[in-house]
């Protein structure tokens, strides 16, 4: 066998190792959003100090919010922890149900046609309106909050996963069928890995939504007082005109949602970093 002549072959080593991004490049990327943050805080301070100088209970200054957070670390941490557990449970449930439904629907057109419209209805039904029923069923407790979080988070996972699982390349399917691959093999080696980018696109949307769902659930349950999550504590702070603490709690809830999003993003990107265009580092 003579050696093959490769006219279009760059060296393998050059292709195998992607160029690592330099440290200075990372810094340069972080600078613009940091500038925006500083400008935002400055504007906020200006408005609260000038327009609402005598009504700080309406618009507290940034430092007052920080002070409120430092004065009530227990309240903030406890509220964040409770909301986190509820959102995590709702999100986990949404992943389980959403992914499973998507897989089942992807395997059978009949099932897809039968159930997908109701999945859409689940998304369009105003959760706030059905929440009283959920509370009737599950009681004024964390279970109701988890169910509401689940209801808000499940659809994007279901929808995106289904889309991904149904987008398998026709030729790939032919290749697998031609070589007598079992349905399970086809699913594990072809459909599922190919759907991962879509699945994680859905998970990223739902990660933030699950926290929002938990807060909405806590609002509806309302009570719980000192023992409730951030949603409960926000209502409580409002009733006492403790706006500094209220702002701090809103910031905590926002950061919690962001953390969810970040964890899911990092996990997803790790899984597809080697091959998917959305993640792969460019060499230019």
């Amino acid at each position: 066998m003579t050696a093959t002549q490769t006219v279009d072959a760059p060296t393998a080593a050059a292709l195998a190792s992607p160029v690592k991004r330099e440290q200075s490049g990372r810094l340069r990327k972080m600078l613009p959003p940091l500038i925006v943050l500083v400008l935002f805080l400055g504007g906020w301070w200006l408005i609260s100090a000038t327009l609402y100088g005598d009504k700080n209970y309406l618009v507290p200054r940034p430092m007052q919010v920080v002070q409120a957070a430092l004065d009530n670390p227990g309240t903030l941490l406890q509220g964040t922890w409770i909301t986190l557990t509820e959102a995590a449970a709702g999100f986990a449930l949404a992943i389980f149900v959403g992914l499973l439904s998507a897989i089942v629907m992807s395997l059978s057109k009949a099932l897809e046609h039968s159930f997908y419209p109701y999945a859409v209805l689940l998304q369009t039904v105003p959760v706030v309106a059905v929440a009283p029923i959920i509370v009737l069923w599950f009681g004024y407790n964390q279970q109701s909050v988890i169910v509401i979080s689940f209801m808000i988070a499940v659809f994007p996972i279901l929808n995106n996963s289904l889309l991904g699982l149904l987008s398998t390349d026709r030729n790939h399917v032919d290749l697998f069928r031609m070589h007598r691959a079992k349905k399970v093999t086809e699913f594990v080696k072809l459909r599922l890995p190919g759907a991962l980018p879509s699945i994680f696109a859905g998970l990223r949307i739902s990660a933030g939504l699950s926290v929002i769902g938990a807060i909405v659930g806590e609002f509806i349950i309302g009570s719980g007082g000192e023992q409730g999550g951030l949603g409960v504590k926000v209502l409580f702070a409002q009733s006492r005109l403790a706006t500094g603490l209220l702002f701090a709690e809103v910031v905590a809830a926002t950061l919690l949602g962001f953390a969810f999003f970040l964890i899911v993003s990092v996990a997803g990107n790790q899984l597809i970093k080697n091959w998917h265009e959305s993640v792969v580092r460019r060499n230019d």
């Binding site: 390349d169 030729n171 032919d174 290749l175 190919g194 091959w275 998917h276």
Partner: peptide, 9 residues
């Protein structure tokens, strides 16, 4: 096939 039909992952 006409396309290389490779698995990108």
């Amino acid at each position: 096939f006409q396309d290389p039909t490779l698995l990108p992952w």
